[in-house]
């Protein structure tokens, strides 16, 4: 049985997800997310000895496609969706630092 969700955990996850939560929201989500996790914890009461972890309800393996080129999108159409573009590229606020 894992320990119940703490307010700090919610704050940490919110930070990782770049979400700014008010104090009231933190309280609310701690309670709501806590209930979701508790529900998942119900599984722990079952005897799962010998049951393999599954990520899918389907017994599918090796779903692949042939390495064949298909049409890409029109660049003007693509860039028109962006707030800003320059020299055929998406323009974004200056990136600070390198990718993690």
């Amino acid at each position: 049985m894992s320990s119940p969700l703490r307010r700090d955990d919610v704050a940490h996850v919110a930070k990782l997800a770049r979400l700014t939560l008010s104090s009231a929201e933190l309280d609310m989500f701690t309670e709501q997310l806590g209930q979701v996790l508790e529900h998942a914890n119900d599984m722990s009461s079952l005897n799962l000895e010998g049951v393999k972890p599954t990520a899918h309800p389907f017994e599918l393996l090796n779903v692949v496609r042939a390495d064949e080129i298909r049409a890409s999108l029109d660049r003007d159409e693509v860039l028109a969706m962006a707030p800003d573009a320059q020299d055929g590229r998406f323009a974004v606020p200056r990136i600070m630092g390198e990718a993690p």
Partner: peptide, 22 residues
């Protein structure tokens, strides 16, 4: 490869920017 990992866009170095996107 001829195409990208998860889509059929060309995997090609040196194309005009944002022409191999989907």
């Amino acid at each position: 490869t001829a195409t990208k990992m998860f889509c059929g866009c060309a995997n090609h170095f040196g194309s005009e920017p944002n022409t191999n996107v989907c």
